[in-house]
Write a protein that binds this DNA or RNA. Structure first.
Lengths: 390, 390
DNA sequence: ACTAATTTGTTAACGGCCATGACGAAATAG
DNA sequence: CTATTTCGTCATGGCCGTTAACAAATTAGT
């Protein structure tokens, strides 16, 4: 959660402030005594920490708890709904979206715009995004909220710990530094949309949210984000999660990556459209979902084949990682009804019973990356509250 | 490294003691000032920590450093070679082995015994192991060393954080609690041999040791241990690493697991022996290595086929995890010369260049699990030295 | 050979932070 | 209305890293 703080008393203090924030965030309104019991400190110590957090505008006191239990009731503490907000932004191939999420995880403001960004240069797109961010920031400020940071989800590869988009094939971007074009007074972070979608699943996906899962999405190619012990696995070079190029049939059709029979050759958008005998004008997913819903047999068969291929690739993944859950997110969640039967059949056949994960469809759907971006800022506040005190 | 210590002053102290130990362990003899600079504390604080560790018999002062640099020379600190030792033990299908490793990582005593344990009941085997442990413990004590714990590597599944072997198919054991039969006065831990082999690779495998890698071994089936950011990925149920049942050809031969075309059907010992036209009397690996070294074409072809299948399965793994390295360990390291060419060909073809891991053969070979077991105890000492002070 | 400069390790005063224990406050149980 | 329980606060104390000063031990320069 927050390892790299120095092992000094100040570092300890900061970690403890973070523990209090996480306790209150994760377990509803809580009294000082409740927090103390949960994080293993004394009431006196927690009182001091809470005072500091209240002064910093991060916690608020709601008033007496009425629990009905014997003894003096505690004073309920809650995250401030007037404190910092995380600004999340998403650059999609056909839209822009921005939202503001408060410490409770509630969306407090949002704005979006439709436009086809395929092949458009980055500059005007980023100018438009900056305008949306300005609007949302204004709206948030009008409600007494303080933007604590901006996180941007992009459909492409982002160099680790930078603000640079190395390559976004669907946008046609290469080496674009978003820090140059979005120069705000707050922290700016940039990450891949599939990663942020998976993190959204981790943070706000379910109840209880799984801590070890594989999140499959298909926006650009087929990506799988792997979360282990509540941490996103990014890979040495940041390329982890390339499920699309896992071999399904070693002698299958040649793939652009140089291999043969990669998953993308069976379950990629292009391959599925071809198998369905369709050519997409706009978003292929929309077309496939519409036709499948209409009962088109060829389309349904194509989706079933894709689901089987996904199941084979995921069977390998599950055997290797033994995750708690497999979650279909992003565009796949819309096609889930027709993918799932064959997917589940293959997955079940090829995995041993005790290690079989639950197979679910994301509740967040296409909202995942945007919410994940905003929440990543909120998490940063919870992880180191002293840096974000008023 | 050591997260679960409480965030109190005592917890901070313990973490700092651990930081000092790790600094000295990882970066040779070091002065107090050197340690201070490395871990970010002041010289005064480090002095106090070092005093405590010296009093506890964990560190020793070697005398003046002669670096040639200007200024007063520091006093070189080193891990004690008379302090605690980790006792590692290994239960193999055809042997038992025990060793003692000191804080420097040096093997200070060892003992082993050959015997076929297939289908033999657990009790006599454990009795014999206990005798070997007694011998090694004696020998260590004779050198002024204190056993700090015993770790046992077993060829089977071990329930998380217990001393119970759930299932060891090659031994024919089920639900054996080693704590019942090895009742020593020190901490006893039990883990799977493939896991410990991978951890050995992490701790003493290379220079620098990779922090993100996949370690493939083939003692029981084909297992892959995944290490991410220096931590072993065990999986939700402890079943992670079942590389043997990753699908290679979805319509391939049926596998005992219920799937088809699993890697084991191509690269498992049984499958390779069959393809080579051999029947093993003793250890199949020995036979294969001998024949291949003799130049037997059929055997070499069988190994080449197995290597290709391994390459396909590993290509999926690499695409998913983007590890820094892939390491062939255990029995595979002996067959590496004949597996590698085809393995590397498939792996290279099916992975993108920037994410391509280095492919290496374990230096530790079949010693990995035993050394890993002993080192796991040593690591425990480094991670929380105050618990092991004299 | 002698001085200046540099670095090490120790010491004492200081300050931050959590634990301890006592206390008043606010509820329930009888 | 009293006893009991729990909550939040306060004063005290102890632990621990920091700061700053100092003696010790070496090299660099003249």
């Amino acid at each position: 959660m927050n390892a790299p703080l120095p092992n000094t008393q100040q570092g300890m203090r900061r970690r403890n402030l973070s523990l209090v924030m996480h306790a209150v965030a994760g377990h509803g309104p809580l009294s000082r005594a409740g927090v103390a019991g949960r994080i293993g400190l004394t009431r006196a110590a927690v009182s001091s920490l809470v005072d500091e957090l209240i002064r910093g505008g991060l916690l608020v006191e709601l008033g007496r708890e009425q629990s009905g239990a014997v003894g003096r009731p505690g004073s309920a503490l809650s995250l401030s709904c007037r404190g910092p907000v995380g600004i999340g932004a998403e650059i999609g191939v056909d839209h822009l979206a921005v939202c503001a999420v408060d410490l409770h995880g509630k969306v407090r403001a949002r704005a979006s715009a439709q436009a086809d960004h395929r092949g458009r240069p980055a500059e005007p797109v980023l100018k438009e995004l900056a305008e949306l961010i300005r609007q949302v920031t204004e709206a948030a400020r009008a409600e007494g909220l303080r933007p604590a940071g901006i996180a941007v989800a992009v459909p492409g590869l982002v160099a680790r710990d930078t603000q640079t988009v190395v390559r976004a094939p669907n946008l046609g971007w290469e080496d674009i530094d978003l820090g140059d074009s979005l120069p705000y007074g707050v922290q700016l972070s940039v990450d891949n949309e599939a990663n942020l979608g998976a993190l959204a699943e981790l943070w706000i996906g379910g109840d209880p949210a799984p801590q070890d899962f594989v999140h499959v999405s298909a926006e650009i190619g087929i990506g799988a984000a792997v979360v282990v012990e509540g941490r996103l696995l990014r890979g040495t070079h940041g390329y982890a999660g390339e499920l699309g190029h896992v071999p399904v049939r070693p002698e299958g059709p040649a793939c652009a990556c140089g291999g043969r029979g990669c998953l993308e050759q069976y379950a990629g958008e292009e391959a599925v459209l071809r198998a369905a005998g369709l050519t997409a004008t706009g978003r292929g997913v929309d077309l496939l979902a519409a036709r499948a819903a209409d009962g088109d047999r060829t389309v349904r068969r194509a989706l079933s084949t894709a689901g089987a291929a996904l199941g084979i690739a995921l069977a390998g993944t599950v055997n290797l990682l033994d995750p708690q859950a497999v979650i279909l997110g992003g565009a796949l969640s819309r096609l889930a009804p027709w993918l799932l039967p064959s997917l589940e059949r293959e997955l079940t056949r090829r995995t041993a019973e005790p290690a079989r994960p639950t197979l679910t469809v994301s509740r967040l759907g296409s909202e995942g990356p945007l919410l994940g971006a905003a929440h990543s800022v909120v998490r940063a506040v919870l992880d180191d509250p002293s840096s974000y005190a008023a």
